[in-house]
């Protein structure tokens, strides 16, 4: 490695790290400035004590969990079935699952509002429950690329056909095969997808705002326009949540490697 390349490498790395850490430092520093002249956790105390924070945050957590359940129920059987019985369809299914990366979320939710409004054949936005369900489905669509990829990668590492045949020869039905053979084997992949979904949903703004649901993302935006320091404390908290989700992904991945090495 010649010295110029080395210097260039260090320069790129240092630049990138400054790029990442200066805004985070700025954010944390600002969130601590609620009391004049000294650093304090006042902004955090105010935020956490705000009943609206508790309500919206709870709502988003619940939404994230519902999204994860719907996502797993749709993605795992599909990815499994495509691998087992329809390998020719894999590129097409994969293409569909990648569409949400190309079609902006705002366009999709625009479609929901017009397609499922009170005067349509499926008036989902007509009731609170219907809108909640629509939002959860929308989140599932947003998470689809990540969830499908994670599960499909997980399935690649196990021999789906042999496991299925072995289970069938022992008398297992499809439910048993999926729930007790396939799912445990791709659990790490499913968990990775789940944490990623959680990180995406918890602070999501566009869908929740346009469907007018009391989620954490719109609350964050509204408070950002009205309060001086609280929004920054909230941003630190949501960064912490993202970090925790990624940390958990690392943890389950490492844990699975560990157990696999022991076997």
């Amino acid at each position: 490695m010649n010295p110029i390349a080395r210097l260039f490498g260090w320069a790129a790395l240092v630049f990138g790290l400054l790029y990442f850490f200066i805004p985070l430092t700025g954010l944390v520093e600002f969130s601590l400035k609620a009391r004049r002249g000294v650093y304090s956790l006042d902004a955090y105390a105010k935020v956490i004590g705000d009943p609206e924070f508790q309500a919206t945050f709870g709502y988003s957590v619940l939404m994230a969990l519902v999204t994860i359940v719907i996502g797993v129920l749709i993605v795992v059987p599909t990815a499994f079935w495509v691998r087992l019985k329809m390998p020719w369809a894999r590129p097409y299914v994969e293409f569909i699952t990648l569409l949400p990366l190309v079609i902006p979320a705002i366009v999709i939710v625009f479609g929901y509002i017009r397609l499922y409004n009170t005067s349509s054949w499926l008036p989902m936005t007509g009731s609170v429950m219907g809108t909640n369900i629509l939002l959860a489905f929308g989140y599932t669509v947003l998470a689809l690329p990540y969830m499908y990829r994670a599960v499909d990668t997980g399935l690649r590492t196990i021999d789906v056909a042999t496991l299925t045949e072995a289970a069938q020869s022992l008398g297992a039905g499809w439910g048993t095969i999926l729930g007790r053979i396939i799912l445990p084997n791709v659990l790490v992949a499913v968990l990775s997808g789940a944490f990623l979904t959680f990180a995406i949903v918890i602070g999501e703004f566009t869908l929740a705002a346009l469907l007018d649901r009391p989620a954490f993302g719109p609350y964050l935006q509204r408070i950002g326009a009205n309060k001086p320091y609280e929004p920054f404390a909230l941003a630190v908290i949501s960064f912490g949540i993202t970090w925790a989700c990624m940390g958990l992904i690392q943890l389950v991945t490492r844990f699975s490697k560990h157990t696999r090495a022991q076997n």
Binding site: G26, G203, L220, A235, F239, T242, C245
Partner: peptide, 28 residues
């Protein structure tokens, strides 16, 4: 690992981070 976190740190909180850094009374 950090890239995994930062690539998912978008949306409203990210905007606040940059406001807190480069905004009128930001750190930088």
């Amino acid at each position: 690992t950090f890239s995994g976190v930062a690539s998912n740190f978008a949306g409203v909180p990210l905007a606040f981070a940059f406001l807190a850094t480069f905004g009128p009374v930001g750190l930088v």
